[in-house]
Design a protein around this nucleic acid. Sequence first.
DNA 1: TTGAAAGCGCTAACAA
DNA 2: TTGTTAGCGCTTTCAA
Lengths: 362, 362
Amino acid sequence: MARARISDVAAAAGVSVTTVSLVMNDVESRISEETRERVRAAARAIGYAPSSVARGLRTQQTRTVGLISDEIATTPFAGDMLAGAQDAARESGYLVFLIDTGRDRAIEADAIRALVAQQVDALIYACMWHQVVPAPADLPAGTVFLDCRPANGGFRSVVPDDRAGGAAAVRELVAAGHRRIAYLDTDDAPIASELRRQGYVEVLTDAGIPIDPALHVHGETTARGGRAAAEQLLDLPEEQRPTAIFCFNDRMAVGVYTAAHHRALEIPRDLSVVGYDDQQLVAAEQDPPLTTIALPHYDMGRWAMEVALGVRAEGDEDATHLMECPVIRRDSVGPPPAQVAKPNRRRASHNTERPQPAASDR
Amino acid sequence: MARARISDVAAAAGVSVTTVSLVMNDVESRISEETRERVRAAARAIGYAPSSVARGLRTQQTRTVGLISDEIATTPFAGDMLAGAQDAARESGYLVFLIDTGRDRAIEADAIRALVAQQVDALIYACMWHQVVPAPADLPAGTVFLDCRPANGGFRSVVPDDRAGGAAAVRELVAAGHRRIAYLDTDDAPIASELRRQGYVEVLTDAGIPIDPALHVHGETTARGGRAAAEQLLDLPEEQRPTAIFCFNDRMAVGVYTAAHHRALEIPRDLSVVGYDDQQLVAAEQDPPLTTIALPHYDMGRWAMEVALGVRAEGDEDATHLMECPVIRRDSVGPPPAQVAKPNRRRASHNTERPQPAASDR
DNA sequence: TTGAAAGCGCTAACAA
DNA sequence: TTGTTAGCGCTTTCAA
């Protein structure tokens, strides 16, 4: 059975297609209530639903949006960003085309072409982590960049406020009384890592704490990388060793946990740790649960969609919106250990012994 | 500047719109090469791209697919499934509309309506974990179910072969020499857990190992849940205690690791563990890396899309395709500990002491 | 309060 | 080898 058309409804209701269109779209009240009801009944009876394609052709508005992203599959952050964008789209009655390019510029170019051919009403260009990217050619004006900024401007964008996030993380540690605070950094994410470093420096400076280059180490953004970098920190002579570590991300923080455990250091008693990302299945599931800075993926996704659809007015055509990264307080931050207590309690260097736990399991 | 239309190209090239259409669609060779080139040049010059909307209206084929999913945001599995579906769609020149319903039946109904109105050529109904679901009303015939099965049949579907997966996991353990193998199960995922249990029972039976109900415990599908269930197992009297645990999923396996560590049990020396899911950022990042069964998300996504688009012929209109779950061998499985060696090496019951490791770290 | 008809941009049957 | 034209299903102007 073929789809019902508007003319079928018109015939069934004994009215013109104009009338049907008018009542289906709830336009004006010039149609009598009686006719409206008759039309609606006819539509229901034959299972009529207007064709968005025909409507799109006629009105030149498709009520669809394109969302081009670099790599959804491999990242755990995509979900929230998509959810925010989707929710905003749905609320405004838009459908979203999702295309994952896998960072392939050719696929990306095809995607833009296809989306333009589909006459999407808006376009969002999303990255799965905060970066500055060369804008692809032929991107329609009005495209919104999500979790990335176009290298040469020209488009609106929304990214996390990583500087403020880094500052918030370090402030958390300073407030707990720490003064030897390390930044366990990475080279894998230049933009974010530099901004967070700026926040780190800013807060330490404000607190009158000198910046110690030895407390700034780098690693890969994995648990393994975090562990290796943490070892460097924990190998430092006791008086220089950090009492707290701010990690570029949660995965690296997991590596810090591992390094600490292997030296019988208890968190947060002997070492405080703050992560970044509030990554699901990672941060909250640590033992103890990790205090971290959340990346506002859902909010960024929603913001981008609202701006793209014109639901949210953003004056500047070329502005970057910074989204706040909230502190998620859990149990990995405590006061620094007493400075010169029980000299032999914590060893001068890591060794191979497993410690006796302080208390029995039961 | 408004979009160029086909008539603009025709005018610019000095030919009819038919000719332009014919060359743009590479139809027949009845157009002379010279004309073709002239048309292409004109199209390029004015930046013409055919409108998919107009074409869709005319041909009644939109080359779009709808993908309705229950909850992308909260699951780490969505990515691969989407990637598989996307890749297949792209290869066939289709664009995909993605709608996440968040398990809201009203949103789901709206989504189906909207997608039908958009005249998508195919529809995929996806769940983020293997389950049997009541098929929503008004689902177009030919819809493919991804990672779930319709309660009353009537649609094609693809799900992981969890029975075979469970069997493979346990076979791995039996092959390593274990005979006291526990199944750390859950009540949170009825379909998958039951199928995996069947695989577990089947392999034990084949190996002539009696099923011990005490070795079948349940917990929530989290690290915490896994740990609690593992405690039950490890509290068993020594002669009954399992030497290997097959966990419903990787997160629960993490809980097993924690429970083991707290009792100074080393993996795999004292206890072998197999997980399920091969969850990114979880399984591979454990210490030691977790041997597990992978869920074939990418392949299922691709299969569903190919069947939905008719690229892959599937005879039966009402069949469930079982996708193999491969074993991912890492380092959490070893032979069972020697039965009666060094009486005091492993304690008769768990106690609170941490052991001295067998060998030094360096 | 309602209807006739043009036209959105394209494809494809048919004519030349 | 190329062109004319009807029509996909809808919205909307204009007329009645």
